[in-house]
Amino acid sequence: MSDIGEAERWRDTVRLSLGAVVALVILVLFFLSLVGASGQPGYPLGLVVAISGLPIACGVLVFWYARRQERIDQRHGLYEN
């Protein structure tokens, strides 16, 4: 593996990591924004969606990120296995 290939692989890795962190921030803000104030009448759909949706979204994000990272590594010939 050449140094150029390794540099490209690291650049892609940084982009992916940054993208994952930005996506995390957006997800957290989005789900928090769904929650209304306490004491609103009726079923608190926003709260329920936020409480269940945030963990699902975060879990999907981590496993998506792990898969994408391995594809980057494979594309640059640096897959650990």
């Binding site: 962190v21 789900f31 928090l32 929650v35 709260l47 945030l54 963990p55 975060c58 981590v62 990120y65």
Partner: peptide, 17 residues
């Protein structure tokens, strides 16, 4: 909810960085 978000986000950061 904020504590939940903090905990979950922490594990995402752990996995990524």
């Amino acid at each position: 909810l904020a504590a939940t978000a903090g905990l979950l986000a922490g594990f995402v950061l752990l996995a990524v960085v």
